[in-house]
Amino acid sequence: MSSSLEKNMLILRSSDGEEFIVPEVVAVMSKAIKNMVEDECASNTIPVPNVDANILAMVIEFCKKHDESEAEAASDLKTFDSEFVNRGQEALYDLITAANFRDVKELLDALCQNVAEMIKGKSVHHIRIQFLGYQLFEILTSNFIWNIWCDRDFD
């Protein structure tokens, strides 16, 4: 690896060991990584615990786009944001956790806005299930009980 590469590039290692080479300007959009770089405790590889390769790739894609398009029109960026965050709930949850943990403000903003859009017309009942993990009768009867009692073997 050449020295120039090392100067401007950082290597991020996800929780499952995959490594990503990203420009420093992109990586420091995460305040947590920025602090590490400024304190010079990031020698060459920065471990990113709690974030797996899949999610880390998404976060890097988002940061790259935001870094490149600083000069671009804000409306373009907005459409990118809304498309980017339009994902399944599992990925959304992981992304929010990652963005919160690594302190990537732009991403967190976009994600929270997306969740807000998702839940703003929903009922209280719905929120309880989604946010607080309440299990309700509907779930009990339709899936939960049948899974537990009907799908087991009685030997």
């Binding site: 709930q89 599992e90 959304l92 949850y93 929010i96 956790t97 919160n100 967190l108 929270c112 806005q113 969740v115 807000a116 839940i119 703003k120 989604q130 946010f131 607080l132 993990g133």
Partner: peptide, 19 residues
């Protein structure tokens, strides 16, 4: 999303909701 969000995230989301 059956897990709980951290409190600060919940606050962030609620800030973006209409009254």
């Amino acid at each position: 999303m059956s897990d709980f969000f951290p409190d600060e995230i919940v606050v962030e989301i609620l800030h973006r909701l209409p009254t």
